[in-house]
């Protein structure tokens, strides 16, 4: 540190600006997002998990395709199988969403953020926009790469899917959309709970631990809960072959969207009401 005199220059001639607009908040959140190391690691992991599992599982399926029963062959989904890595990458991206807000609280940075931009919903909206754009981009990149990698293996058995086939393009784009939704789900849970550990645990529980457990619930209500539960609904958009007893691709995605939106709305209400 160099010694400084402590003298203050005359009031700086700052150009008249628009102040703390939403666009300004988005630029700020963009800079914040990409100036911490965890972001790049999470984005790289999302890509590696999605594509890596596509290669692994597609290779495995294509080598054992000869031994598969006729029934299994009939329900084989070349597109859905190539996107199987989303099961893991959805967690990575959701945790990134959690961290985007929870680290503001764990570091105390939230007070500086809200002092600079006292309109808190503007901050939350800016975070959601940056996160959605980045997650959608990495989701689409990962899913298209995973799709092509998967089809390389399937092509050897002539069971590959093509983007021009019915529903296939929708499913691959849908994989990217699902990644974005998971990120926003994480942001929403993080906004409500504020603590990193609690929010990460809750997000993992809600996205992958609880959904399969809902199958244990009895009766028609149990079936309904299973169908509508977070990833059980949201993941349908990445499939071409319809899973029995599940919601349709767009219906499922709409349900999952409504779910994270509801949690984010709750978070927004709490964000405005609570002391920072």
């Amino acid at each position: 540190m160099t010694a400084v005199t402590g003298a203050v220059p005359d009031q700086a001639e700052l150009p008249d600006s628009h102040g703390a607009t939403l666009a300004a908040a988005v630029r700020s959140e963009w800079t914040k997002f990409f100036s911490v190391r965890s972001t790049m690691w999470a984005l790289i992991s999302t890509f590696v998990f999605t594509v890596g599992f596509a290669a692994l599982v597609s290779w495995g399926v294509s080598t054992s395709y000869g031994q598969m029963s006729a029934q299994d062959r009939a329900s084989f989904d070349a597109t859905g199988t190539s996107l199987v890595g989303l099961t893991f990458s959805q967690l990575v991206i959701a945790v990134l969403g959690v961290l985007m807000i929870s680290t503001e609280y764990s570091t105390g940075g939230i007070r500086g953020t809200f002092t600079a931009v006292p309109r808190r919903l503007r901050v939350l909206l800016a975070k959601a926009i940056v996160l959605a754009v980045v997650a959608l981009a990495i989701g689409l990149l990962s899913c298209f790469t995973a799709f092509y990698v998967g089809q390389l293996f399937f092509a050897s058995k002539h069971i590959e899917a093509h983007l021009g086939d019915p529903q296939v393009f929708r499913a691959v784009v849908g994989g990217g959309l699902y990644v974005a939704a998971c990120a926003l789900f994480g942001l929403a849970v993080g906004t409500v709970l504020r603590h990193t550990a609690g929010a990460v645990t809750a997000t993992i529980a809600l996205l992958i631990v609880v959904p399969p457990l809902t199958l244990l619930l009895p009766g028609r209500w149990g079936d309904a809960i299973t169908r509508y539960f977070t990833s059980n609904a949201g993941q349908r958009i990445g499939e071409v072959v319809h899973t029995t007893n599940a919601l349709g691709p767009w219906t499922g995605y709409a349900v999952f969207t409504a779910e994270w939106a509801a949690v984010l709305l709750l978070g927004a209400v709490l964000l405005v009401r609570r002391d920072a």
Partner: peptide, 21 residues
Amino acid sequence: DVHGGRSARAHLRALAQSNSL
């Protein structure tokens, strides 16, 4: 009260951007 993972410059740049400075 600041995210320690950021450089001082990045921290200040983000704040400046938030107010279109």
